[in-house]
Design a protein around this nucleic acid. Structure first.
Length: 556
RNA sequence: AGACCCAUGGUGUAAUUGGUAACACGGCAGAUUUUGGUUCUGUAAUCCUAGGUUCGAGUCCUAGUGGGUCUACCA
């Protein structure tokens, strides 16, 4: 179990810090979502990383909502984020923070900067500020407002806070160096005027800090030891460090790692929002979405997701993870915990000619061969059953181990059959398969000596229940929908990502399925009851199909 | 093209920190199997290029090449 000795680069940093005695009281990490959307599997990677680290080493992980932009943030997202983190299995105890709780402190930090002539109020328009920044090759130019006196800056900044100026008319900028090659150091804007109610502070503030002026200081206030973020913030690190240094506050350390990308999907909140807005999917929690809530509705387990996040590793290299790894993790977990059931997705009647019409019998079926404690259930058997249409072939290849005239096959948990014929309608459509059964071949007490290569799942027509099944396929037709910048990723969605199958026949035990139970429809895949469907309706979502080496070989 | 970052099988991640490449997924082949599932066994496939340092380089240095990020009053 403790086979994985290898450590990722962040663990190596932490172990060195610990060995150097830098953090005798333990380490502190944080997960800092902005409450403006739902969490996706990429966030899960960060959650598992941050909480995982402080579980492994002595430490704590804070949950901090980075709520500095009232435009897009809301309490609804705060709630969904907390629900998802808890579901994933992590507990931030009482360490739930909001950047907005620090608005007062941040304001004081800003004043401190002004007093030391390290920040100034700029009346330039956004366009003028942009022009002044220069380009990556050309240094920027100083703002005409750069040399205002400390007193004037203090007065104006207070005016901004008090709502004396129009939105957009002034900003507070750090006074650093307009000729730095790093654009973030060219006098970055650190405060802007926004006359807007905030979901937590209401109308208390007319100014809001920018990310760069909020995140690092919040880390510092909470004495975060290791502030882990994704690669695109690498260029922000000099500013992060500069502010901490100038302010003389707790020196949190920012470390960047590569974000998670999954093929056949997209991972940015903005892009996911577009899928919702354009009706490609039903909601953020649609089972096809790579969101935590979508995956939950799909039937993915928290354990599978945690395991997946563990396996993808942490490094600084851009990466695109194969969906097959995620699916492997899901199957691995579900194989152990899911209850086996029989469901026929595309039913065709099977008539056992030598089975008496008025006869019925009860059979016992194990719930999970991987778990003896899962017990057994009763299923019924009779003359008329349903089997899968694709499990019959009139003229099959030799390696087809299923139903075909003259061939032997076992019905799972029941008898061996010999196919004796079939019936088609006028259109040539198969409507009935006929067979004869061998009474002495009963499952568990087989004395027939007959060998059947294949085993089929089935449902007794007498007590089969009707169900609907949502089958899912990848969301996009191509592995990397964003790879070609000239192509709109919305044009690459797979319009067959959802396939609703009606008229599915399932065994009666499924009627009591709860939405948290995971089922394996034998020989088909893993399914979970759709919790959004009407309670009197049996609807199942396909979590993931079983591996199918027969189909992979093209059925030959 | 300025700064910063990155480069190991198909995909990811490792390599006791300088001692000639491993693990997982995926692929292929086989065994087992009352799920063509699970399990098990085997197999193919990798250090971006060129120099340099060194007895020895995936690891260090230089150059090149390729990729990523950055010029929001978003985070």
């Amino acid at each position: 179990m403790e086979k994985r000795e290898s450590k990722n680069f962040i663990e190596q940093i932490i172990e060195k810090d610990l060995a150097d005695g830098k953090f005798p009281n333990g380490i502190i990490t944080r997960f800092p979502p902005e409450p403006n959307g739902y969490l996706h599997i990429g966030h899960a990677k960060s959650i598992v990383l941050n909480f995982g680290l402080t579980q492994k080493y002595k430490g704590k992980t804070n949950l901090r909502f980075d709520d500095t932009n009232p435009d897009t943030e809301s309490i609804e997202f705060v709630e969904s984020i907390k629900r998802d983190i808890r579901w994933l299995g992590y507990d931030w105890e009482d360490r739930e923070y909001f950047t907005s709780d620090y608005f007062g402190k941040l304001y004081e930090f800003a004043k401190d900067l002004i007093k030391r002539d390290l920040a100034y109020v700029d009346d330039s328009t956004p366009d003028e500020i942009l022009a002044g920044k220069g380009t990556v090759e050309v240094p920027g130019t100083n703002s005409p407002f750069r040399e205002r006196s400390v007193e004037e800056n203090l007065r104006l900044f207070e005016g901004m806070k008090n709502g004396e100026f129009a939105e957009g008319s002034k900003v507070l900028r750090a006074k650093i160096d307009m000729s730095q090659p790093n654009m973030h150091m060219r006098d970055p804007v650190i405060y802007r005027i926004k006359r807007m109610a905030h979901h937590r502070t209401g109308n208390e503030w007319n100014i809001y800090p920018m990310y760069d002026f909020a995140h690092g200081q919040s880390d510092s206030i909470e004495e975060i030891t290791h502030s882990l973020c994704t690669l695109e913030f690498e260029n922000h690190r000099p500013l992060y460090n500069w502010l901490i240094e100038q302010l003389g506050i707790y020196p949190s350390r920012q470390i960047e790692f590569a974000r998670l990308n999954l093929n056949y999907t997209v991972m940015s909140k903005r892009k996911l929002a577009q899928l919702v807005e354009n009706g490609v999917v039903e909601s953020w929690s649609d089972p096809r979405m790579p969101t935590i809530s979508g995956m939950r509705n799909r039937g993915y387990t928290a354990a599978a997701i945690r395991n997946f996040c563990d396996r993808v590793g942490i490094a600084k290299r851009d990466n695109v993870i194969d969906m097959s790894l995620l699916e492997f993790c899901v199957r691995e977990d579900l194989n152990k915990v899911s209850l086996r059931r029989m469901a026929v997705l595309d039913p065709v009647k099977l008539i056992i000619e030598n089975y008496p019409e008025d006869q019925h019998e009860n059979l016992l079926a194990e719930n999970n061969p991987e778990d003896e404690t899962a017990g057994e259930r009763k299923i019924t058997f009779g003359r008329e059953l349903y089997i899968e249409r694709e499990d019959f072939m009139e003229d099959p290849p030799k390696k087809f181990f299923r139903m075909a005239p003259g061939r032997f096959v076992r019905l799972k948990h029941a008898y061996i059959l010999e196919c004796s014929g079939f019936k088609k309608d006028d259109n040539g459509e198969l409507i009935e398969v006929h067979a004869r059964y061998f009474p002495e071949s009963k499952s568990g007490s087989d004395t027939s000596g007959i060998k059947a290569k294949g085993t089929l799942h089935w449902v007794n027509a007498a007590d089969a229940m009707e169900a609907k099944v949502n089958m899912y396929d990848r969301l996009f037709k191509v592995a990397e929908p964003l790879a070609d910048k000239k192509v709109d990723f919305l044009d690459l969605v797979n319009e067959d990502s959802l396939n609703v199958v009606e008229g599915v026949k399932v065994e009666p035990a499924l009627a009591e399925a709860g939405s948290k139970d995971h089922f394996q429809f034998m020989r088909k895949g893993y399914f979970v009851r759709d919790k959004n469907a009407a309670s009197d309706e049996l609807v199942f979502n396909m979590t993931v199909g079983l591996r199918d080496s027969w189909a992979k070989k093209g059925g030959k």
